[in-house]
Write a protein that binds this DNA or RNA. Sequence first.
DNA 1: AGCGTGACGAACT
DNA 2: TAGTTCGCCACGC
Length: 105
Amino acid sequence: MKNSFTDRVYEIVGQVPKGKVISYGQIGRIMGNKAYRAIGQALAKNPYAPFVPCHRVIKSDGRLGGFGGKNDNDNKAKLLKSESVAIKDGKVGQEFFWELIPIDG
DNA sequence: AGCGTGACGAACT
DNA sequence: TAGTTCGCCACGC
């Protein structure tokens, strides 16, 4: 626990319910800033890999992003499907996007 | 302390 | 509509 910006990201992502996804923009919005890039950085480092379902974090376009799009393996995409997240044309429907994160605790 | 990078986003052409 | 460019913030060197 460092209470840093990155940790906040892990906190938020960890709050994402199963079967739903969230975009970097959403997270940034929740934190009150637009550090979309920093969020990606935080997850990229992701020291809490198993504690942070990074696969639930996708781009605003609805696409997975670089954590699965770069890899030929669509395991990540299938993983999302396994969580009831239907991916159409390689993109997640806006309906699966999480609304907001009540980090209130 | 400064420069460059990156799992992004929005705007422009 | 599709492709490209700039801007954004935090982290690493």
